[in-house]
Design a protein around this nucleic acid. Structure first.
Length: 878
RNA sequence: GGAGGCAUAGCUCAGUUGGUUAGAGCGUUUGCUUGACAUGCAAGAGGUCGCAGGUUCGAGUCCUGCUGUCUCCACCA
């Protein structure tokens, strides 16, 4: 083995081997319990980014853990066609060639899109391999595969036939530049300075009418009413009267609606159902007509009279000027407001009415609400339930049509001859009623329509496949909190609707990866972190553990070079600990632990190992991968390396061959358990080391198919472990005394111990450790303090060290003074508690007892310290 | 505007159902070529757990209010 950890040597080699051996493949196997994770499909537009690296690491860790626990594990990978994001990229690329999608036509455009998918969709898959993802590549899916397309079509038809899909008008976000409607999520709001124009609408009877305030005067031409609050006394008498719409000869009514805020502007609102979502709702309530005065490119249309053909802002200026000339412009105020912008091209969004396809949500939502409320589906951490429920309980119908080409085309066909409208599972060419040629709806479905079916469409639905039967419902869905509403919610109601069973048992939410200042990572900030660069530089294991370590579910992660470096060091530590163990193995035959005569140190490390297995397992079962990683870090570094390896040297460097063989056997056993425990999180380094472990100590040909450690496999020895800890406490105390009193490390001394009753017999078993690790030459049991010795109190007993001239008296006095102060305040605290009658009466007995013990302990310590201080002062001649 | 999260050492974060002297990593101080590792070892310093109340024998942990901060939702003419 190399002296330092070098992941390049083995990561790719191991991954190729795993793939070749088909360790990732899942099979329907009735003898085993299935455990399934559906990978949230990355967009084909993307490279693997740090957020993917996080979510994939969590999933891979869980799936590897469950595989080692004996489950038939399926982690199903795939990619998403990402309708709008991909289309925009393809359009941009074509623009470089001077082409538009209209020029090349739909067919050619789709050809290019699939070409794109083949080229870039594969890239992210490769990158997942670099990370170590153990997903079943034989089941790789894509949201526009034949199989999944069929599922999409089936779902659409079933909704349609149930009457849950309808074609209706609604206000959408129009991007006049991209010439398409975009979803609410793709709108970015920014606070901008605008104007609030107060415009008088005269009454038809010649009286003065009402002043309305608006930020978009150009929509005035589509006004169908003016609304006031029904409780607003100023306007009560006007409700029901007619007003003259300025710049036109139309008359519009004054209506009363709760939506109007009396205190804003003039308290009267112009209602333009075709150009504002709220106005649209008001219009529905009051049966107003919808009159659209702008086209899809942001220009005024033929209904705009003399303004027809003008750009929206041009028309705005012209109309303000005209209103002013007519004396109808009462005043203009500067006004700060939020304006939506297209997140791709940044132009201002125009809310505009258009015909879209919708899914009715009310009946779909209810079971999905119930499933979470009754804990059939569990969110981890639980607080995200609230987000979900709030959204679901206020859900609006789902607009599923997009004016794009890349996606699942809406399977609705129209017959222009007889006016028929048909939905069909298969493409049809002619009208089933009259035989005339039909045309298909031009729009495609929202990307999330196919993602919503992901947990079962990937398993073969609508067929009743053995996969679907065996692997569904899946176990855990892992995702960041930002797509709970887009995606998680939609999978839940889709699963409940089509399969009549929840799509997953648990939703595990993790946070977002941020930079060291806590900012979101973004291209524009230039603080992006490229996971592949990190893999190249430090290895996949380092990236994985740096991302997840120490983070509990739901929290954001700050990534920094420092963090990465410290985990690189940790990998190196594991590597070198393994190197130490394996170097010492040589030709030694490794014995099963049952045949080893265990030392006190062996019993201690085995006891600690069992405890660690229990805790790590507990965290893994709760999907707290980050906390499991922390536990392992502590155990491996502080207990195995810093203590056990050092303790083991006592036997390894002795001349007793049997003793050596025993210790090596324990070292190998603990090491291999450590590797297995850590393998789900850091698969590569653990697999590489495992291959180097002597064959007789390996149970499987590869660590990833070995069994996860069982805390009951080896017997714990709690009493001996406590005894060992007394020795360790003594070692620490001696080291601290020497360091603080300035004794040269190379200067070894005799050690004398007045063993405490609880530690009877320990020196015989463990005195060697004390000598070796506490800079001793010999250790001797004694009843009283030899002359010229300094005493320290430890759980093992009192230890006497002949320091004499070695000691720096001032330093020692200072140290003792601090200790004395500390002991006094502890004593005071304990006495205070015991003086409180209520505490003694109500607190658990054990606690009261321990406080009493504390009083005794600190009383003793104080008198010992005082004696020592006096003694040193005397010795120093002060 | 509505909802939620977070606030613990200089920095990044753990802290189980309330119960010994609140932990880790990084940084920092001192010492060390100790036969795996200086990507290391040993020893130390560093915290009135955001502020103000409350419940309790006992609060970092539970409740209320406040402040700061972040996120999501809405987008009021």
């Amino acid at each position: 083995m190399n002296k330092t950890f070098d992941p390049k040597e083995f990561e790719t080699k191991l991954y190729d081997k795993w793939k070749e051996k088909k360790y990732f493949s899942a099979h329907v196997n009735k003898d085993k319990k299935p455990f399934t994770i559906m990978m949230p499909p990355p967009n084909i537009t993307g490279q693997l980014h740090i957020g993917h690296a996080l979510t994939m690491t969590v999933q891979d860790s869980i799936i590897r853990y469950k595989r080692m626990r004996g489950y038939e594990t399926l982690w199903l990978p795939g990619t998403d066609h990402a309708s709008i994001a991909t289309e925009v990229k393809i359009v941009d690329k074509m623009a470089e060639e001077g082409l538009t999608k209209e020029q090349v036509g739909r067919e050619e455009f789709l050809r290019r899109a699939f070409e794109w998918k083949d080229k870039y969709g594969g890239r992210i898959i490769e990158q997942l391999g670099r990370l170590g993802a153990s997903c079943d590549w034989d089941r790789l899916a894509f949201t526009m595969d034949k199989k999944l397309t069929r599922a999409v079509r089936e779902a659409f038809v079933r909704y349609y036939e149930k009457g849950w899909i309808y074609h209706g008008a609604r206000i959408v976000n129009l991007c006049p530049h991209c010439k398409t409607a975009i979803s609410d999520a793709e709108v970015e709001y920014e606070t901008e300075e605008g104007h609030l124009w107060h415009i008088r609408y005269p009454a038809a009877d010649g009286s003065e009418g009402i002043v309305v305030a608006t930020t978009r005067p150009e929509t005035l031409l589509g006004d169908m009413a003016v609304a006031v609050n029904p409780k607003d006394k100023r306007y009560t008498s006007l409700v029901g009267k007619m007003l003259i719409l300025p710049l036109t000869d139309r008359q519009i009514p004054v209506i009363a609606d709760e939506y109007v805020d009396k205190s804003f502007g003039s308290g009267a609102v112009k209602i333009t159902p075709a150009h504002d979502p709220n106005d649209f709702e008001v219009g529905l309530r009051h049966n107003l007509e919808v009159m659209r005065v702008m086209d899809d490119t942001g220009h005024m249309n033929e209904l705009a009279g003399k303004y027809a053909g003008m750009d929206r802002y041009e028309a705005r200026d012209a109309m303000v000027k005209d209103l002013e000339a007519l004396g109808l412009l009462v005043k203009t105020e500067v006004h700060m407001h939020n304006v939506g912008h297209c997140h791709r091209c940044k132009s201002a969004i125009e809310p505009i009415v258009s015909k879209q396809w919708f899914v009715k949500m009310k009946e779909l939502a209810q079971p999905a609400i119930d499933a979470v409320k009754n804990r059939d589906i569990k969110y981890v951490p639980r607080r995200f339930e609230k987000n979900y429920l709030y959204w679901m309980e206020n859900i609006r119908d789902w607009c599923i049509s997009r004016q794009l080409w890349w996606g699942h085309r809406i399977p609705v066909f129209y017959c222009d001859k007889c006016g028929g409208e048909f939905v069909s599972r298969e493409d049809i060419k002619t009208c089933p009623t009259c035989g005339a040629p039909v045309r298909q709806d031009e729009d495609v479905l929202d990307t999330w329509f196919s993602s919503a079916l992901w947990p079962f469409s990937t398993l073969g639905w609508p067929e009743k496949t053995p996969d679907l039967e065996y692997f569904y419902p899946t176990d855990v869905l892992v995702t960041a909190y930002d797509i709970i509403t887009f995606w998680v919610a939609r999978m839940i109601y889709s699963g409940l609707e089509f399969i009549k069973e929840k799509p997953f048992d648990t939703v595990l939410i993790h946070g977002l990866v941020r930079d060291e200042l806590g900012r979101k990572l973004s291209k524009s900030l230039g603080n992006g972190i490229d996971p592949l660069e990190i893999i190249d530089e430090a290895g996949a294991d380092v990236l994985r553990i740096s991302l997840i370590s120490g983070v509990s579910a739901g929290g954001d992660i700050k990534y920094s070079d420092k963090k990465q470096e410290s985990f690189r060091n940790f990998m190196n530590k594991i590597w070198n600990a393994a190197r130490f163990v394996l170097m010492n193995v040589g030709e030694t035959e490794i014995l099963p632990i049952e045949k080893v005569r265990l030392t006190l140190a062996d019993k201690w490390i085995i006891t600690r190992l069992n405890r660690t297995i229990t805790e790590v397992t507990k965290y893994m079962e709760r999907y707290e991968v980050g906390l499991a990683a922390n536990k392992l870090y502590d155990f491996i570094w502080s207990e195995f390396c810093d203590w056990y390896i050092e303790l083991s040297k006592v036997s390894l460097y002795s001349s007793d061959e049997k003793k050596k063989q025993y210790t090596i056997s324990v070292l190998v056993r603990v090491l291999s358990d450590i590797l297995k425990l850590a393998h789900p999180i850091i698969p590569f380094i653990t697999a590489e080391i495992y291959q180097n472990i002597p064959a007789e100590a390996r149970e499987a040909e590869d660590i990833m198919i070995s069994a996860y450690p069982d805390p009951k496999a080896l017997k714990s020895h709690p009493k001996d472990a406590r005894a060992m800890e007394m020795v360790m406490d003594a070692i620490r105390a001696v080291r601290a005394l020497r360091a603080e009193t300035g004794v040269k490390p190379s200067r070894r001394t005799e050690l004398y111990v007045h063993v405490s009753p609880a530690a009877d017999g320990i020196i015989k078993k463990a005195g060697e450790y004390l000598v070796k690790l506490a800079s001793g030459t010999t250790v001797t049991e004694t009843e009283s303090k030899p002359d010229g010795c300094t005493a320290i109190v430890t759980t093992l007993g009192e230890i006497y060290i002949p320091m004499g001239e070695l000691m720096d008296y001032d330093k020692e006095l200072e140290r003792l003074g601090g200790e004395l102060e500390n002991a006094r305040s502890e004593l005071e605290r304990a006495q205070g508690k015991l003086a409180n009658e209520k505490f003694v009466a109500k607190a658990p007995k054990a606690l009261v007892e321990s406080e009493k013990e504390k009083v005794a302990k600190f009383t003793d310590r104080i008198s010992a310290l005082e004696a020592k201080i006096a003694e040193i002062k005397a010795a120093a001649g002060k």
